[in-house]
């Protein structure tokens, strides 16, 4: 099989797995939240979530009807071949998944309001590229729901306020979002770089599993502190009250301009979908997040 066909097949499998099976770490976090939630309405919601996750697996159907905007992250080995063909393969895979899984057509022309019907359109699916050492290609898909996307926020904070300003920015974002992003959420927090970079790395931070701590112990502590703060809001599962508003906070940063303190909060809904696979130069495929037969 040609590399480009392999990429298309792998991307199709990833899309299918991602929308049907929640990553194990997210599932475990939801189970833990259900066990610990004390609000009655909140517990009802978490139970419905867990039942739904189980039914999706049983019936091989998407967990949520909003199968999201399709975003890919590609780590391309500098020595990998046919990199110029990858985007085309990802578009084909997206079209196929839309029909065969199926996915909801979620790609609309912002001027004519016309839905393309196949989840593709100008710059969609969006592909984030990274060139890495070696000759393999690592593909990650993040089908990103619209409800949680609508409350993502970026801002230029006051550098003099430092981390305190950042904490308040995140807490305020969660308070403002309320029930809208389908809590319990996962928060990606991006700091520095510039306004565009902060949001880009915030969203990328959502790819880190909940059971993998930040490699920097100082930042890991900050993540924990922010998690504690946002769970004091009482918004709860689906905004019906309770102590589980956020399942995890993942921080990502870049250095900043002395005069600027860009920050961004990317929200993911409880249906925090992602799937990753690696394609070797020998065309061997390794699925890293899901089991694919």
């Amino acid at each position: 099989m040609e590399t480009v066909n392999i990429v298309e097949n792998v991307a199709f499998n990833l899309l299918k797995q991602a929308v049907i099976y929640l990553p194990e770490d997210v599932k475990q976090a939801l189970q833990k939240a259900y066990a610990e939630e004390t609000s009655e309405a909140g517990k009802t919601q978490l139970k419905a979530i867990l039942d739904n996750v189980e039914l999706a697996e049983k019936y091989q159907a998407p967990i949520c009807q909003d199968t999201g905007t399709i975003i890919f992250y590609v780590k391309a080995g500098a020595e990998a071949k046919n990199l110029d063909k990858i985007e085309e393969a990802l578009i084909k895979a997206t079209r196929r998944a839309t029909v065969e899984v199926p996915l909801r057509p979620n790609s609309v022309n912002p001027f004519t309001q016309k839905n393309s019907g196949d989840n593709t359109g100008r710059l969609i699916p969006y592909v984030n590229w990274e060139i890495v050492l070696g000759d393999s290609i690592e593909l990650t898909v993040m089908p990103k729901g619209g409800g949680s996307e609508n409350v993502c926020i970026s801002g230029m904070l006051v550098p003099g306020e430092g981390i305190k300003g950042l904490k308040k920015f995140v807490v305020d974002a969660v308070l403002k979002a309320g029930a809208k992003p389908c809590p319990p959420n996962i928060l990606g927090v991006g700091i520095g770089g510039g306004s565009d970079i902060a949001m880009k790395i915030a969203k990328k931070a959502l790819l880190r599993p909940l059971n993998v701590p930040n490699s920097d112990p100082e930042i890991a502590r900050l993540e924990k502190e922010i998690l504690e703060a946002v769970n004091m809001t009482g918004i709860g599962p689906m905004g019906l009250g309770g102590k589980t508003t956020v399942l995890g906070v993942n921080i990502n940063y870049a250095y900043r301009h002395p005069a600027s303190y860009p920050a961004a909060v990317a929200f993911n809904c409880w249906a925090a979908r992602r799937a990753t696979a690696r394609i070797g130069a020998d065309r061997k495929v390794e699925y890293l997040t899901h089991k694919v037969e």
Binding site: I49, N52, L55, A61, C64, C182, W270, A271
Partner: peptide, 27 residues
């Protein structure tokens, strides 16, 4: 309030589609 995202839980309680109207608005 139905649990956001619990699409299969909802789908399983839907026994049949009686009809669709105004499909010109999109699915």
């Amino acid at each position: 309030a139905f649990t956001g995202g619990a699409a299969i839980l909802a789908a399983k309680a839907i026994k049949s589609v009686k009809s669709v109207e105004w499909l010109d608005l999109g699915m």
